[in-house]
Design a protein around this nucleic acid. Structure first.
Lengths: 240, 240
DNA sequence: GAATCCTATCTTGTATACAAGATTGTGCCA
DNA sequence: TGGCACAATCTTGTATACAAGATAGGATTC
């Protein structure tokens, strides 16, 4: 039997350390491109994405395009209806609610684990971030920028607690949540309230006040997604 | 412009209610088959899965086989090394630890939400399950059966709290965890301890004793995965 | 004998032709 | 006018040939 040593080497873990790449670059580029278009709502929920159209647009055969679409469908960016077509997925409010809940539950526990023993470097990073949030609000830089800072704030927390992996898990179910957030378009006074809450949480963490954290995050668990507003204004984007 | 009405109908949500099927049956069957083989460790971590071999075995062309492998790789059953081959993934202990943590955090919150107001029907179901667990231990039916009951127990909890969605999320990251559990092969006395704990938890829930739940589940958050034992006996299965 | 190049042959990646389901619109008929 | 059958044409699904990277093993060289 030939090629036994390839097998052995792989089994012997020479290769597993190498970086996993699913293709050259173009497929990854197309993927990123489509994701961006879907998340930004340039590609509207329900819009059709045909394989042939994409293959002409990117000058590639249908085969690699199909690979991309398949992956997008597994990450819920796209719904595949066999022999009918591929549609940009509708925003699923159920998913949004569940992911917000998951996020809050995790965060509560993570913050409690950091309470009282947060590393100095991390503390600086978080305070820096809060300062930027403040600046963002004062100078009215818009919700987009604020949300990015917000994400970074939470992600840092996950990292400090050694739970970056779980942040990654959350990201994989974010399609619906991100688009929901974009449509929601928070008002300025709400941004200020969020920043204030972040500040309070960080204070509790520094003081090691786990009870305070519990108290403050408790009402978050009943994620009150503003579905009525969305149902009215963006009915065609929402999954029924 | 033609075919505008297909688009409209889809956008008009006639079709989204239909069940999503990625293919006829054969692809799904192959998928399930491979998953089972990988989870049961018949296909050992590091083993090579060639497209041509599968296509001969299942009498299908490489194209649908590739679809299956692609999906398996996204669910971490398989690692694809471009132009080299597809390997059954090695067990990633880091994933195992993170998933156990996630599971415990979620469960703690879910049980607390059920405390004091668990529906009667659900209570019966859980008690039934505990009785079966007891029977399983007494008659030494083996860890396999017990673990299945264990899963069912927790899943029921998720369902009662309206969090079946999140149970699904957990399942998607289970490849490493399930295989880890299989290798671990719990001893009988440990099974009894687990059952005892379940019983205690259910009692707390009925009594509405959230503090008790907190207390009992607290130490679970420091998931002590028994990696030393595994590293010794199954080194070739573990991701380095 | 050791290192290096080269070729055979394995692997997956891509392009393309054809199969087959789904939808539309037309033409027939009542 | 309404309803039905049917054909045209869109879609994705599958098979297959070929391209190209990766490895192994042997011939050549020193």
């Amino acid at each position: 039997m030939k090629f036994i040593s390839l097998f052995y080497i792989m089994g012997g873990r020479t290769i597993p350390n190498r970086k996993l790449v699913y293709s050259m670059t173009s497929k990854k580029e197309i993927m990123a491109y489509l994701k961006q278009e879907i998340l930004s709502l340039e590609l509207k929920p329900g819009a059709m994405i045909s394989e042939t159209a994409l293959s002409e647009r990117f000058q590639l055969s249908r085969t690699p395009i199909r690979d991309v679409l398949k992956q997008l469908s597994l990450e819920q960016y796209v719904d595949i209806y066999p022999k009918k077509g591929n549609l940009v997925s509708f925003i699923d409010l159920e998913s949004v609610e569940q992911i917000i809940y998951l996020r809050n539950v995790l965060e509560k526990e993570i913050m409690k684990s950091l309470a009282g023993n947060i590393p100095l470097k991390g503390l600086h990073e978080l305070r820096d971030n809060l300062a930027q949030q403040q600046k963002c609000i004062e100078q009215a830089e818009g919700a987009e920028v604020f949300l990015q800072l917000d994400d970074q704030f939470h992600r840092t927390m996950f990292g400090l607690a050694g739970r970056e992996f779980l942040w990654g898990v959350l990201q994989q179910f974010n399609v619906h949540y991100i688009r929901y957030r974009k449509l929601h378009m928070l008002k300025d006074e709400k941004l200020a309230a969020i920043r204030q809450e972040h500040q309070q949480l960080l204070d509790y963490i520094v003081q090691g006040d786990t009870a305070g954290i519990d108290e403050l995050l408790h009402h978050h668990l009943r994620a009150d997604i503003d579905s009525k507003n969305l149902q009215e204004h963006f009915a065609t984007y929402i999954k029924k």
